[in-house]
């Protein structure tokens, strides 16, 4: 019984994923490309960086990087808190 249930769940999930994969957009053709074109054209002039990805990550979207650094800091603090020396 459980086996057939598992098989049915697998088939449903795999079928849904395959159904969606048939309708996916072609690679490199996003629906809205204005922002991409803007970054491609102006990131070298405005940020003076050849790597547009780093220009986006550290300049245009700097707040995201700040949040990522905060998340990493919170994770390290959590690990240090859990694995601390236990007072007898």
């Amino acid at each position: 019984m459980t086996r057939w249930l598992r098989l049915a769940a697998f088939l449903v999930v795999a079928g849904a994923l395959l159904l969606v994969a048939g309708q996916i957009r072609r690679f490199g053709e996003p629906r809205l490309a204005e922002m991409d074109l803007y970054f491609n054209r102006y990131s070298q002039d405005e940020v003076a960086a050849n790597n547009a990805v780093t220009a986006i990550v550290f300049d245009y979207r700097g707040y995201d990087t700040l949040g990522e650094a905060t998340v990493l800091f919170a994770a390290v603090v959590g690990v240090a808190l859990i694995l601390r020396k236990v007072k007898k």
Partner: peptide, 23 residues
């Protein structure tokens, strides 16, 4: 080139190295 980007790269790089290394 790139203004503050290399400095920020070094800051974040040291932070990630120290964070993951200490974990």
């Amino acid at each position: 080139t790139s203004g503050t980007l290399p400095l920020m790269n070094w800051a974040v790089g040291l932070k990630v190295l120290a964070g993951l290394g200490s974990v």
